[in-house]
Computed example of a mutant assay.
Amino acid sequence: MKRKILIGCVLAGAMMFTLLVPVDARIKLVTKPGRDSVSIRLDNKRYTLVEEERTVPLQTGTNRLDFSWANIRIDKESILIRVVEKPKGAKEVNVLSQSYPPGENALVWDVSTDAPGPCRIRISYLLFNLNRVVSYRAIAEKDEKKMVFKTYLKLRNFSGEDFEQAVIHVGYGENFKKSMKNGESKQMLSAKHADVPIVKTYTYDYSKYGGKTPMHYKIVNDGKNQLGKYALQVGKARIFIIKDPKSRDTAFLGEDWLRGETGDICPIGGEAKLFLGLAQDIKVNADELTPVRAPQRMFYEEVNKRGNAYNLRERYKLEIKNFKKEDIVLDCIVHIDNMGRDCYWEMEEKTHEYEKKDYRTLIFHVKVPKGGKPVEVVYQYLKKNLWR
């Protein structure tokens, strides 16, 4: 009986308290209706940033705004609120506090204003399971001098939320508006570039391909080559060649991942290569000719403390045969191994000029005539300051 009286007193006291203290306005926000606009950024591989603007009616004093969501993959730690447009006549609008109601997918803000009226706010958050996939379609002309290069964009929405006329930013090109239902995937042609110049390359790199010779189409992402408006994203490319210029019938050559030289996006001005397969009619034989270790005087004064230093002379030969019907240029990549921190090298002899890609990688661009006549590439260098 005492417990019932106590409860009654508490209830009565609570009722008297609510009569004496003004009740704060409480506005309930939900994720589905009520958006004025929404923008979605898909330029990050792991996270999708959503920014939505809403107009909420505020009263003078403290207002409570509830932002709630159900079955939607929102990172609640990332939710932010900003005031975009104050109520007319208001000098300031302040966010006093925020809290997470226990056991709910919700966030509550206490917002104060000194004048009533509609207030435009922007809510941003990170959303999972809403992403994009970029792919490409490359169609080379029969002479393999130019190609039609198409970029496709697929939007995949499995976030649990629907979006109407959202402004989409995918990380390249211009923004566009698109509606997306939950569970929906949409693919669209986002760019088409005609007459893109291509160079067919042949590469010899024993450390990467053994004695085989891969073929690639090389494109340059700049305006001079009909591209260069934005960085090319990493994506799978399907490669075709036109068999008959009149009918425009195509043959499938293969598929490869389009990447820049660093393995990531291809920036403006950068190069990208598409793998076509291995050339069966180009043969390369490599021989190591008499490596000579040439001991010499100690390089450092403190030699007894650091050990013995020596030079190493290495001489190599490549014999290349081209059985194709046309002349080619073979890019022979040479890696100078066992280069320690204090080591360096000098080229002593060479039959062909080379390009120095970095301090230990050389590229010989060798012209090889058709018909199978062998071409020899001989080079010799001296590695200095090696340690036993």
Score class of each variant (00 low, 15 high):
T55L: 11
E51F: 00
L19S: 03
T60V: 14
V23R: 13
P22N: 02
R64S: 10
D36A: 08
E52K: 10
R35T: 03
T48F: 10
L49F: 04
P22E: 01
I27H: 08
R64M: 06
D24I: 06
E52V: 10
Q59K: 14
L20A: 14
T55P: 04
T48G: 12
P33I: 09
P22S: 04
D66K: 12
Y47M: 13
P33E: 12
V30K: 14
D43C: 02
P57Y: 15
V30S: 15
T60F: 06
L19C: 02
T31C: 03
P22Q: 03
I40V: 13
K45I: 09
V50F: 01
V21G: 03
V50W: 03
E51G: 04
R46L: 10
K28H: 09
P57R: 15
S37P: 00
T60N: 11
R35L: 09
R54F: 12
L29R: 00
E52T: 10
L42P: 01
L29D: 00
K45D: 11
T31S: 11
A25H: 10
R54K: 15
F17W: 03
T18F: 01
P33K: 14
P22D: 04
M15L: 13
T31Q: 10
T60Y: 08
L58P: 04
R41D: 12
L58W: 07
L58K: 03
T62P: 00
S37C: 01
K32T: 11
D43G: 02
E52L: 14
R64F: 13
R64Q: 12
T60C: 07
I27T: 10
V38H: 01
G34F: 08
K45V: 09
E53C: 01
I27A: 08
L65C: 07
L58I: 13
D24T: 04
T31M: 09
E53N: 06
R35K: 10
R41I: 10
N63V: 07
T60R: 11
F17P: 00
E53V: 06
T48I: 11
D43W: 00
K45M: 06
R35Y: 05
D66L: 13
V38T: 11
N44G: 05
T55D: 13
S37I: 00
L65I: 15
R54H: 12
K32Q: 10
F17T: 01
D66T: 15
E51H: 01
S39A: 09
V56G: 04
K45A: 12
E51L: 05
E51K: 14
L20H: 06
V21P: 01
Q59Y: 13
D36L: 11
Y47E: 15
M15W: 08
P33N: 14
R26E: 05
R54C: 12
R26Q: 05
P33S: 14
V38D: 00
T60E: 13
L58S: 06
E52H: 07
F17E: 00
I40T: 05
V50S: 01
R26K: 03
M15G: 11
T55A: 15
T60G: 06
S39Y: 00
F17R: 00
R35H: 09
A25K: 09
T62E: 06
D43T: 02
Y47A: 14
S37N: 05
D66V: 14
D36N: 12
V56S: 02
V38G: 02
K45E: 09
M15Y: 12
N44K: 10
R26V: 07
V50A: 01
P57V: 13
A25I: 02
G34S: 11
T48W: 06
R54L: 14
K28C: 04
G61W: 04
E53Q: 12
